[in-house]
Nucleic acid binder design. Structure first.
Lengths: 163, 163
DNA sequence: AATAATACATCAATGGGTTGCCATAAATCC
DNA sequence: GGATTTATGGCAACCCATTGATGTATTATT
């Protein structure tokens, strides 16, 4: 069944290419995510923020959202997080005075999460650091490379959502 | 979400394409990682394992490693995790009887982590579930797509390591 | 032989992620 | 008006991840 086996690494690939390639994809995804959080959070040390918190702030800083805010429900759908986890992150952001929970005038059950003035100011400063991080982390990536990577991850996200 | 106004999203892009594209890349990375862990771990519910634990088992199940084991130091470098975190994961794997710590005969300071017989048997069964997960999560991805994605993530990993 | 570096472990604190269950208030449905 | 659904929050348990500081055994250096 098996001929003389070559080197280990290539040997694995040859035996089951589909599995080995997929395995590498997800392993790199795992490593990239850990590195992104570790070094991204290190970049934000001056603000005491984390990458996850900046994801929330980024969602709230979008033009359309900035004025009226965003419900917890919509934030959950946007960030793909569990309610319990998001609540804890929002608590920390609220404790720092960066976001506030206001009652939705149109639906008393809903809370609209909004950037505070302090939050907006902090976010504006953070943006410079985030920019620097993106440039360093994607150094050598052409815009085409980045778009390609985004599209592949986007497709993967959809598949992972329905798996 | 109610009015049809595509101007916002594209407007942001036009204002600062480099930033917006990078932002999307890392946001998708964040989402994909969370989804991978959530649904990957759900797939492994029968074994009570997590994606992180299967990464460790996968490292230990490689042909060259399988017999002699792997030092904690090498595992840290391979998985890119902190020692404190890896110790905890290994403790759980050891408590389940899937791995064991043996003294390195060549260096008394070092511990070699090895799959136990029970660990090997469990891993062999897990592989079927992992295969199914990979196929579902990469459904619609040609082998070329997967290799492309792997290479992009691999480059990104290198950049993120030195950022 | 004394010193320094290495490999591992432990304890502590903080933050992020999940699931599951329960509680409360407000909107909706009948 | 009463029952149900929806949106949020709280509590608990578990796991994963980081940093920082401390300790201990072993190897390497000098």
């Amino acid at each position: 069944m098996s001929k003389a086996k070559p080197a280990v690494a290539t040997g694995e690939i040859l035996e089951d290419p589909a599995f080995e390639v997929a395995n590498r994809v997800f392993f790199r995804l795992y490593q990239c995510s850990n590195l992104m959080h570790k070094n991204g959070t290190r970049f934000m040390a001056d603000y005491g923020s984390t990458t996850q918190q900046w994801a929330v702030l980024g969602a709230l800083a979008r033009p359309r959202v900035r004025t009226q805010g965003m419900s917890v429900k919509d934030l959950i759908e946007f960030l793909l997080l569990s309610r319990q986890n998001l609540t804890a992150v929002l608590d920390r952001l609220e404790a720092r005075g960066w976001v506030e929970r206001v009652k939705d005038p149109e639906d008393g059950r809903s809370r609209l999460i909004r950037l505070t003035a302090k939050g907006e100011k902090t976010w504006a400063q953070m943006l410079n650091t985030i920019r620097a991080f993106y440039e360093a982390a994607l150094d050598g990536f052409s815009l085409e490379d980045q778009i390609l990577l985004y599209r592949l991850l986007d497709r993967m996200k959809d598949k992972l959502s329905t798996v």
